[in-house]
Design a protein around this nucleic acid. Sequence first.
DNA 1: ACAGAAGCTTA
DNA 2: GTAAGCTTCTGTT
Length: 987
Amino acid sequence: MKKGDHLFLVDGSGYIFRAYHALPPLTRKSDGLPVGAVSGFCNMLWKLMLDARNTDVGIVPTHFAVIFDYSSKTFRNDLYPEYKANRSAPPEDLIPQFGLIRQATRAFNLPCVEIEGYEADDLIATYARLACEAGGDTTIISSDKDLMQLVGATVGMYDPMKDRQISIPEVIEKWGVPPEKMVDLQALTGDSVDNVPGVPGIGPKTAAQLLEQFGDLDTLLARAGEIKQDKRRESIIANADKARISRQLVTLKKDVPVAEGLEDFVLHAPDGPKLIGFLKTMEFTSLTRRVAEATGTEAGDVQAVAVTVERADSAHGPDLGAGTSSAAETRPDRAGENGMADEAPTAEKPKAGDTPSLLAALRLEAATARKIDTSAYIAIRDAATLKAWIAEAKEAGIVAFNAETTSSDPMQAELIGFALATASGRAAYVPLTHKSGSGDLLGGGALENQVPVREALALLKPLLEDRSVLKIAQELKSSLVVMSRHGIDVAPFDDTMLISYVLDAGTSGGHSLAALSEKWLGHATTPLKELAGSGKSFVGFEQVDIDKATAYAAGHADVALRLWLVLKPRLAAKGLVSVYERLERPLVPVLARMEQRGISVDRQILSRLSGELAQGAARLEEEIYQLVGERINIGSPKQLGDILFGRMGLPGGSKTKTGQWSTSAQLLEDLAAEGHELPRKIVDWRQLTKLKSTYTDALPGFIHPDTRRVHTSYALAATTTGRLSSSDPNLQNIPVRTAEGRKIRTAFIADKGNRLVSADYSQIELRVLAHVAEIPQLRQAFADGADIHAITASEMFNVPVEGMPSEIRRRAKAINFGIIYGISAFGLANQLSIPREEAGNYIKKYFERFPGIRDYIEETKAYAREHGFVETIFGRRIHYPEIRSSNPSVRAFNERASINARLQGTAADIIRRAMVRMDEALEKAKLSARMLLQVHDELIFETIEAEVEATIPVVRHVMENAAMPAVSMSVPLHVDARAANNWDEAH
DNA sequence: ACAGAAGCTTA
DNA sequence: GTAAGCTTCTGTT
């Protein structure tokens, strides 16, 4: 075991009891053998081995062991004969399951560890210590408080039944003391289940308070006389010995002489046939199917195996033989679909224990081996067939879903049909409102033999909402909005676009279905325009011939399902499960709700502004024509350039990369500063026409006819860094810098009786920089709430913050921003309009004062060069495949981008975490505030007036603590929040 | 009808 | 110097 390795230790004995009581009783159908705990155990192991969904930073186990108690008698009974003496015999129907669970462990190819005289907890403590000494990390799969004393920097716990991570903050939250004091706390409280005496009258709250006061148990016992409360003092003095012996009992032994070392726990790929043999014997049909699919084993070819069952009346009962009834394979398999079986790892044992990677490789091979046949799909034309398909999807536990609609805007879209896929190559399309394609003005009548929309949706709803059926889609969010408008809440789901985004952000090609299909399946999807035409000749999808629509829509569902098979295991293989599960997937319904809510925009304000802008622009136009002498097209940079630098011969002209005269605002401003009249007017004209065309004229067109609100669309997978993007309309670039522009924000309003609340992170990227680059001065400045740019200037130029000239601060601010953007002397010189040498000197000086930032930059570049990607502090990967380019400017660009990506991406991750938690936090606080918009470091809410004051602290708390508990930042996050009637005043 | 360039808006 | 999206113009298809 080495640094970076991760050991999973399952508390097998603890799990048995917990699963037995928590899960509904389950018996084997053929003979009534109780197997509830075994089933829970197998499901948990399978999930852990493949999925690593328990972790917050994407951990895949490299080492894995299941630990059991050997017998009830241990060294603790010598210390204290009454230890665990009050334990009653386990329930009758649990007894046979002890042995079965050990056999299950072996069927999973996992080490099964137990040592006479020691409890499972002692073995876990010992192995966690060994792992820590070897530099590795450990996750203990248990929620037993007795194990919490082991939690620390490299040791975490995970409760598989509650899907909850337990690390230091959770221990403190639950018990009021850090893990290292758990032993003292338990010594005081005792444990009635294990018959650990403790001090009578002392419970967890009192114990935590006493330990807080005295520091530890020994100090407490020595100074017990100081305790004020009479009863408490007397009890502790009288029971000091009991407390001491209790501490010995609860302290786990970290030096058990273990026979097996960590090297014996290297995780091996599951042996498909071996595992399936056991699962079939247990008659766990759905897990059998999942394992068969994942390992590429043909379950039908595997025989159930013999298992040993202990009966309550004999500890080592006879071999009762196997339940040999093999699970019926009800899934509709099609000919030629079994390509995976050939590649199954049965012939030779895989070497290293990288199970997810192996699975990913197998899936990819299988996916490309089976060609996609779009003529094989089925058109569902009646309710009975649809019912059968839905039943099939339920049985499969997994279904790819794809809706076809009348519009790419989900708030306007009406359903035309939908497609389902239940297995590779098995897909169907359900046309609902297709019309005959006859070219008359009415577009033809509705076609015969389509399931009525209402009936189809009524059948579909239970499937899409079924918690035990995983829905798979490519870009689910828009379908989520459409289905939500029909009262259907799709869950649970996986989104292939997002999986691809997590795996491959920054690699070429994008994450569209077409791109992914081409990349992973070698299959070219049919462009929509080949079916429905484009531009003027575009006909709605409802006019598309049903056979063609079926090939298209069912094909998309089939492709999505196959992509999921290929891509999902890659998440685990690359340690990106938690990025996907915590930062991507949960944001989908959050954004869908935000989009559906929309924001009110005052049409009148915009229309008035349009008029004002038109007037101003018209006046400037006339003045410009006067100066130029003819009515040129001012909006044409080409014409402008010819006039300014050709005809008028103004100085300082430069060319763009296509050889045109540049007429950029910067250049025109420079000319204006020299006293030229025309450039100033052109700049002003551009500002007014920009505001008019992009905002005041365009926004009213986005007001929804029914909701009377504007519904933007957020893209989750459009940026390389993890930021969202907004379009149709883009509400992330509404003007704010100039007074003229800000007027547009006054049109974004709260409904009557409501207020808009705007909450934005202050300097989040600089704070992330101070944290990741570990810059003491910056950390201190943020901790003090100081003016960060002034502090920077003060450090660099040796001037006091008090009475600092604004120009000095401005330069420091530009440098700070420059760092975030991956500074270059060229860029800084441009920004500050100073010579390049001077900018270079500033940077040099900056690095002298903040050497940690230079180190950070160099480390980032080196890391990006070595790996081809960088990571945010939450593990999001951003790829820079061109970072090793031999072209120096391409290389430099990629270096700057990678430096920026860590900071921008981390900030993006933080606000994503806040957004994921926000709705629940508001609901828990019984607040009705609705999150409407996100603008990278700002969230906009709408809430009723009376709740404004209560809402702001909740919003602030969620945002400021968003990094926790995954990352405890060394710099505080600060959120400014304000409420007003419109966005301008709230911001 | 579409694609790319130029220009401008945001964080 | 980073990350986006939208509009207009211009040239090509």
